[in-house]
Structure formats: C-alpha cells, structure tokens
Design a binder for these strands. Structure first.
Length: 434
RNA sequence: GGAGAGAUGGCUGAGUGGUCGAAAGCAACGGUUUGCUAAACCGUCGUCGUGGGAUAACUGCGACCGCGGGUUCGAAUCCCGCUCUCUCCGCCA
C-alpha cells in the first residue's frame, strides 16, 4: 500500500510512476485525492464537535458533583443534539475512509528508479548469464518423455486424482522431489543464514491482503470451506506461495531494530487456480495447479533493501550453480513487474528439452508496500517507528527446476546424472535407465 | 462440539460510569555516581489520525484498553454479537 500523505504531496510523480506500469492505475489518483480531501474536512469538523462535547460533559460531571442537578439536566439536553450530529459525521467520515482505503488497496507499488521502462517481458534486460547450454551428442528428450520412460511422474493418474494440472510423482520422481526440497532448505539455512520455518498451507484473507494478493487476485486463489458449510467459505485460502504466511509472521508487530534483519526460508506446496491462464491443460509440469517451492523472505531496515535484494538473488543463483544448470538473470521492466514489487529479478534456467528458458525464481523488494499493508514496523535508533523493507524470492520453484535438471543431465542411455551436491540427498549418483 | 476463564501500552500487570491515555514493575533511552564486563539514584519514555509550525524542534485537537455494534451528556469500565487464547470434557491424526 502506498502512503496517502506521500501521494498527496507527490501527485504527479505518483501518476507518472503508476503509468509506467501500463496498468491504467494512474487514473485513480484524482479520485483518491478527492476522497482524501473530503475525509480530512469531515474529520476537522467532527473532531471540533467532539472536543466541544467533551468539555460540556466535564462540566456536567462537575455540576452533578455540586448537586446542581437542574443546570446539569439543561446541559445534557443541549449536548444530546451535538451527539447526534457527531454520529452522523462519524458515519460519513468512516465511509469516506473506507472508500479511500479500497482504492489504495488496488494501487500497485511504484517501480524503483533503477527499474527500466518497458511494456512487456520483451523489454526485460538480461543482467547476466551463468554456464552455457549443454550440447547433448544425441537429440535431448523432453521432460515429459523422460518422466514417462523413467516412471518419475504418472501424468494420467495425477489427472485422474485431481484433474489436469496436478502431478503424481512416483518412484525416483517422488524421491528426487523430496531430495531437492531437503537440499534447498539445507543450502539456505546452513550456507545463507536463513531460519527455516514450516508455515500453515492455508491462510486467512488478511494475510493475502498483506502481501498484495488480495483484493486484485481473488480469482487466482483456491478458497476452502469446511464440509458443506458455505458460511465458512472465504475464511481460508490455499497458499499460492509460502510468501503469504511467512511474510506475515510478524504482521501488526512492532520490532526493535536490533531484531533485524530477519531471514526466513520455508518449503511449501503452492496452489494456483491459474484461472484464465493459457497452458494448464497441456501436458508436462511447466504450468501446474500445485507445485513445490522453497521460498526466501527477508525483513530488513528500510535503507538496506536493495543490498539485501542483490544478496537474495545470489542465494537463488547458488542453487542453479550447484546443480550445474545454465541460467540467466533478468531484470523485470516497469510493465512486467508483480503487483507489490518495486524491483524484481527473475532467474530463468535453461531447459534443453523445451529449447527455452524457464522462470524458476523471482526475487523482489517490495520496500514498505507490504509492511504498510500488514502494519509491520520496527523502532529505529532514533525511536521512530518505520516500516521495514520486505523481500521475497523463490529459492527456487521445484517443478521447473525438476524439468531443467532432468533435461539437462539426461544421458544417451536414458539415465539421469545427478550433480554431486544433490547426491547425498537422493542417495544415488544416477537415476538409472529403465 | 460442550462447560468455564480471559484479551489493557515493547513485555508483565492494576484498574467496574466522569478527576484514566490509563497505577506499578520490567525493558529502552538520557544523566549522576561508585575501581572492578555490573549495581544504585534521578529523569524521559504508547500508537495512529488531523491541524499549526520549515516536510524540524515543538505544539492544539481527536481516536485507540481484542474486533464490531448498543446504552449514556459522558464507556477500559454496563449490554449484545464476533474473533482469538487458556483450562476441563468429548471426538480425532
């Protein structure tokens, strides 16, 4: 959420930076500021009345104390009207505040000044590459072929159980998935200083609003209900990412600066309805309704957000380096960034079977956009309460990592070579050919 | 699911209609002092909103004692609803 006072004093810049996202949100600023003005005018009026009432009430108390009951009764009658007027204005002020808040919640974050202008993903500059595309001395198979031949995933039965877009990992496939999760968590906790947490896989709507999923992306989430009791629908949602619970761990808290920075990492499955998206329904595991992910979250002092973001991208890159996978780092342009983010780096891994790069990580600094929504603050050294920067990054998404891994390290005989750092987790150095 | 108890400032915890934004303690911050990585003493010390002021220091006003309503001239305090926590019982992995 943006700071209404900042918008008030920087109207043109707000509009300009919103416009750079090409979402049309700059059109809402005028109405927002009108509501703000109306709200403040109402407050001025009602607060004056409240002040008056308070003074009179005090006099009444004194009069009763002096047993001057008649005078007290007279004042009571006079004050009654003020009370009615106050109730009326209060109601108007609340409604105006609510309308203003509704608009604020639909405005995305402002892009950081270092974010390149652009409309779509084709405008995203590549920052760097690591490694190079493997050249197999044979035509590389796609992950779908490999999964079926090696019995890693039973696509048909996955769909039978839950529909298209849901995967049934089997045998070595299930084992590889588990090994990867373990490997990632160990890497981030032992090498990168993150504290592991294991959060609920459902959250309440406040958490979804806190990270910016709601109200804009209601239809992307799976809402759950208890049994057939439709009155419970909407109280809990399957998490689209561990960011939803983990970033909210300290919501509505006031932290001390010496508690920062906080680094969390968490494994969770991620559930995405992908309503209206193309791709679900096609075979494979590139775009699915449920996938595993290890997520990194940082809560840091406001002046350290961008240094911490660079470090986080490095943490995600390390995963791919250890797994010997070719990748590139992309900086998202203004038009392609996520709703809550001020600056985002994507990491895309090379998948030879697909002949394309796959996004496996997205690392963002949301600055104070989310902490403001969730009212998470820390007391700085000057004793001021300030909103920390909140960062999130995939470290990394599993399904696509799985794809890149088996497509990259497939051997001519149909087996999969396992990179050394992963071997202890899988308990094998190869997934044998069928 | 049933019965009971509770929710107060960063934390602990008093406070049952006006003098309460709220005692006290802890923590924090500033200072004094003591020869021993500490103690004692003094002082400061909630948040948010809105106005004045230089987008400062400071300051006026309002709101906030889990959340939302109600009663009242006036509510932390009384009434209703909700959420959460704890204890006991039931069910259950």
């Amino acid at each position: 959420m943006l700071d209404i006072r900042w918008i008030r004093e920087n109207k043109e810049e707000t509009e300009k930076r919103l416009a750079s996202r090409h979402g049309g949100d700059e059109a809402k600023v005028d109405q927002l500021l009108q509501l703000d003005q109306k709200r403040r005018a109402l407050l001025t009026e009602v607060e004056q009345l409240k002040s008056d009432r308070k003074a009179v009430s005090k006099e009444i108390g004194a009069l009763i104390g002096q047993k001057k009951l008649e005078e007290a009764e007279a004042k009571k009658a006079a004050t009654k009207e003020i009370g009615d007027r106050i109730a009326e204005l209060d109601q108007q002020a609340n409604q105006t505040t609510e309308e203003q808040q509704d608009i604020l919640l639909t405005l995305p974050n402002l892009p950081h000044e270092t974010v390149p202008a652009g409309v779509s993903e084709t405008d995203n500059p590549e920052i760097r590459q690591w490694g190079e595309k493997v050249s197999h001395p044979f035509p590389p198979k796609t992950h779908v072929e490999l999964c079926e031949q090696l019995g890693l995933i039973d696509f048909a039965r996955g769909a039978k159980l839950a529909g298209s877009g849901f995967l049934l990992y089997t045998g070595w496939g299930a084992r590889l998935e588990r090994a990867l999760i373990q490997f990632l968590l160990d890497l981030h906790t032992k090498e990168h200083g993150y504290t592991e947490v294991s959060p609920p896989f459902v959250v309440n709507p406040d958490c979804m609003t806190g990270v910016g999923q709601f109200p804009k992306f209601y239809d992307q989430a799976y809402a759950v209900q208890e049994g057939q009791d439709s009155s419970t629908l909407g109280k809990l949602y399957l998490i689209p990412t561990a960011e939803a619970p983990v970033a909210n761990i300290h919501r509505e808290e006031l932290l001390r600066e010496d508690q920062l920075p906080i680094y969390y990492c968490a494994y969770s499955p991620c559930f995405r309805a992908e309503a209206g998206a193309a791709g679900v329904g096609t075979r494979g595991m590139i775009r699915v309704h449920q996938f595993d992910k290890v997520e990194m979250i940082k809560i840091v002092p406001a002046d350290q957000g961008y240094a911490e973001l660079d470090a986080m991208v490095g943490n995600a890159e390390k995963v791919l380096q250890l797994l010997d996978l070719h990748y590139r780092v992309i900086l998202l342009c203004t038009g392609d960034m996520g709703f809550a983010s001020a600056k985002t780096f994507d990491i895309e891994v090379w998948a030879p079977g697909q002949g394309s790069f796959l996004e496996v990580s997205s690392c963002s600094n949301c600055e104070d956009y989310q902490s403001r929504r969730m009212n998470l603050r820390y007391k700085n050294k000057d004793g001021k309460n300030v909103f920390p920067h909140l960062l999130n990054g995939s470290g990394t998404a599993l399904a696509r990592l799985f794809v890149a891994l088996i497509e990259t390290h497939q051997q001519e005989d149909g087996s999969i070579r396992i990179p050394k750092p992963l071997q202890p987790y899988l308990g094998a150095d190869i997934i044998p050919a069928p």
